[in-house]
Write a protein that binds this DNA or RNA. Structure first.
Lengths: 208, 208
DNA sequence: TCCCTAATGCGACGGAAGTTGCACTATGAC
DNA sequence: GTCATAGTGCAACTTCCGTCGCATTAGGGA
């Protein structure tokens, strides 16, 4: 139904794609997913709404496409020289990004919007899954460095360490809706790093 | 605007309230928050949609009211005799509840719907915050028992221990959208219990 | 029991979202 | 350069959501 890869990818089609995805990101930054409307994107991009419905299927398709594009950025995890401070910086980055997004109209809103959209749309859920998988993969470097320094035992499940460090931040932001996500980052980093050093995260049933 | 507490709480008003909230829960179980519509609730409950809009303001108000009602249940945390297995049971309960909800049309959907709605509606966000606060408060008993048994040092921040144990489960369910939430519960319980015993969770800046 | 009025029912209206059929434009193969 | 057609623009249409004014009903104090 939805043609994501047109058979004529050149010229006008390419320009339309770029204009629509740009407009989508801008709208997300301003209004979040709840305010993301095909009609507004159409008006902003100058592309007719029928075209958008045909090519992306709706608001969820727009979001998935925009996220897939954002996925190709050059983000790398922090490198402070020690596992715990790396994890803390990671968590604080998450907390800061989402907190700022909630107040201003920042681009962190795109991530928030995607998490929200994943509840309603399989396409968005899949886009989010792929995005987070990629992020966790890049974060594995943090644990790999710690392993090289001898901070943690060999065979440590890197992704699991990172999950333990950032999960409490997301929990406070989106599940329990409490304040103090930034402080939680420090505590979680301490816990995760401690457990990693003690060997609790050595590749168990979930290594992958 | 929205009159949550009518001045005539008896008779028809009470019957309408019950019928509407029942219908809301049923709709949530079948279609989630995305499919929660005032018109459908009106049709199902036999109460006119204008009445629903006047008293609850919209879909988000319905959800908040339904959740507030569910908040008054008699749920208590598991008691297995040891901290780590208590935490594991807790996390597995969460994982099972939400996984089942995702497949069938179960009541766990109400919680999922609330988390989703919190992204769009301040009322739902506040309802979710209150609900989770109450749940965390009840879960503190798990840590209190461990403290009495001497498993963890005095002054351990109970809520923080519970957050560390369940956050990775929620993270996999709703943020990274990975499989294996149940397995994550075991690992997280191990990490949280270990850190608690080591005194990492002794009341820090975030005791409250 | 009576009576004031809070609460509800009812229908119509305005607006926004999404769909569809048709005409037109410009891409890319030749 | 030419030409078939993928892709787009356009406008009308249907459906659904939320609001409003007014008539009607029933709660609960007297």
């Amino acid at each position: 139904m939805t043609r994501v890869t047109p058979r004529r990818p050149g010229g006008r089609t390419a320009r339309n794609t770029a204009a629509v995805l740009d407009a989508t990101l801008a709208e997300l930054g301003e209004s979040g997913y709840a305010g993301l409307t095909v009609e507004r994107v159409a008006a902003r991009s100058g592309v007719h709404k029928a075209t958008i419905y045909r090519r992306w299927g709706g608001a969820d398709g727009l979001l998935a496409a925009a996220l897939e594009q954002a996925d190709h950025d050059s983000w790398t995890p922090p490198d402070t020289g020690a596992l715990e401070s790396d994890l803390r910086a990671l968590g604080e980055e998450v907390a800061a990004g989402f907190s700022a997004a909630a107040e201003e109209g920042e681009e962190g809103n795109v991530a928030t919007a995607t998490i929200a959209a994943a509840f309603q749309s399989p396409a968005a859920a899949e886009a989010l899954r792929a995005f987070m998988e990629e992020r966790l993969r890049r974060c594995a470097e943090v644990v790999a460095r710690a392993e090289r320094r001898g901070e943690v035992p060999e065979g440590t499940d890197a992704a699991e360490v990172v999950r333990a460090a950032v999960a409490p931040v997301y929990f406070r932001l989106f599940i329990s809706r409490e304040e103090g996500a930034a402080e939680a980052a420090a505590r979680a980093a301490q816990v995760a790093a401690g457990a990693a050093k003690a060997g609790t995260f050595r590749a168990g049933p979930s290594d992958r």
